Simulated assay, not measured.
Amino acid sequence: MKLFLLGFMGAGKSYWGKQLAEHYQLPYFDLDEVIVEQEGMPVADIFNEKGEEHFRKLEGEVLRELTLSNDAFLISCGGGTPCFSDAMDFMNAHGKTVWLNPSVPVIVERLQRKQYKRPLIQDLSREDLLAFSEKKLAERQPFYEQSQVVISDDEVTLETFDKLINNA
């Protein structure tokens, strides 16, 4: 089984990625963590020093490399991954795409808890964070909507995943 977890920042991709990889006994990759390891610097530094275009190109390459060199896995993608390098078409052709889509208030609540760790949003007020999240989510939604499985519950369980993933 090849599973790709997609969704906005704070959707739960890293949390559920680890849980589901263990549950399904799959190798787990966090796409951003793999990139950080390869580049030897945090994502924010890659953006600042080499630019978003470089990061997105690298992201597409690493995604393809992981996908084609592993028979089974679960990959937690970055929030923007599906929007670049024809990644949605690639992921849909090579595995199951699962969009974690909690409500915007839940996303904002989760982001606020670790806002200091995210350079893109660390200085935003709650109102600005809400506006930013709504705007970015609207931009990315056409890509996310191409997912084979959509989980829109604010509270998700392993049983929810089992039911939806096995029926997709």
Results as ranks from 00 to 15, higher is better:
residue 40 G to S: 13
residue 63 L to E: 09
residue 73 F to V: 10
residue 87 A to P: 08
residue 31 L to I: 09
residue 67 T to L: 01
residue 86 D to M: 07
residue 77 C to H: 09
residue 98 V to Y: 10
residue 55 F to V: 10
residue 27 P to Q: 07
residue 34 V to F: 05
residue 64 R to G: 10
residue 100 L to M: 06
residue 69 S to T: 15
residue 63 L to R: 03
residue 35 I to S: 04
residue 104 V to A: 04
residue 74 L to F: 04
residue 92 N to R: 13
residue 59 E to S: 13
residue 78 G to P: 06
residue 79 G to T: 11
residue 73 F to K: 09
residue 81 T to C: 10
residue 81 T to D: 01
residue 51 G to R: 04
residue 64 R to F: 03
residue 56 R to V: 00
residue 103 S to T: 15
residue 101 N to H: 05
residue 45 D to E: 14
residue 69 S to R: 14
residue 94 H to L: 09
residue 99 W to D: 07
residue 46 I to Y: 07
residue 49 E to N: 14
residue 30 D to G: 11
residue 28 Y to D: 06
residue 60 G to V: 01
residue 36 V to L: 02
residue 50 K to C: 00
residue 85 S to R: 13
residue 73 F to S: 05
residue 103 S to L: 05
residue 71 D to R: 15
residue 31 L to S: 09
residue 58 L to F: 01
residue 45 D to Q: 15
residue 67 T to M: 02
residue 86 D to F: 02
residue 28 Y to H: 14
residue 72 A to L: 06
residue 60 G to W: 03
residue 85 S to G: 03
residue 37 E to L: 10
residue 55 F to D: 06
residue 62 V to S: 01
residue 87 A to L: 02
residue 57 K to F: 13
residue 62 V to C: 04
residue 80 G to C: 07
residue 83 C to S: 09
residue 40 G to I: 02
residue 51 G to M: 06
residue 74 L to H: 04
residue 107 I to R: 07
residue 88 M to R: 04
residue 99 W to M: 05
residue 80 G to H: 04
residue 78 G to H: 13
residue 31 L to A: 12
residue 55 F to I: 14
residue 79 G to C: 01
residue 89 D to Q: 14
residue 59 E to P: 13
residue 40 G to K: 12
residue 43 V to H: 05
residue 103 S to H: 01
residue 52 E to G: 13
residue 77 C to Y: 07
residue 43 V to G: 07
residue 56 R to G: 08
residue 102 P to M: 05
residue 35 I to M: 08
residue 43 V to S: 09
residue 91 M to W: 03
residue 75 I to K: 10
residue 60 G to K: 06
residue 46 I to M: 00
residue 50 K to S: 04
residue 65 E to W: 15
residue 68 L to I: 03
residue 79 G to P: 03
residue 104 V to E: 08
residue 48 N to K: 12
residue 52 E to I: 01
residue 34 V to G: 05
residue 77 C to L: 03
residue 92 N to T: 12
residue 69 S to K: 15
residue 38 Q to F: 03
residue 103 S to W: 11
residue 56 R to P: 06
residue 44 A to Y: 15
residue 33 E to L: 13
residue 59 E to L: 12
residue 36 V to T: 06
residue 87 A to F: 06
residue 99 W to C: 10
residue 51 G to N: 09
residue 96 K to H: 01
residue 105 P to H: 00
residue 72 A to N: 08
residue 85 S to N: 15
residue 98 V to R: 13
residue 86 D to E: 11
residue 45 D to C: 02
residue 85 S to L: 04
residue 71 D to Y: 12
residue 87 A to G: 09
residue 35 I to F: 05
residue 70 N to F: 11
residue 89 D to E: 14
residue 74 L to A: 09
residue 80 G to T: 03
residue 87 A to Y: 02
residue 98 V to N: 14
residue 67 T to C: 03
residue 30 D to K: 12
residue 98 V to E: 14
residue 83 C to L: 04
residue 44 A to I: 07
residue 105 P to G: 00
residue 54 H to I: 06
residue 28 Y to V: 11
residue 97 T to V: 02
residue 29 F to C: 03
residue 45 D to R: 11
residue 95 G to M: 09
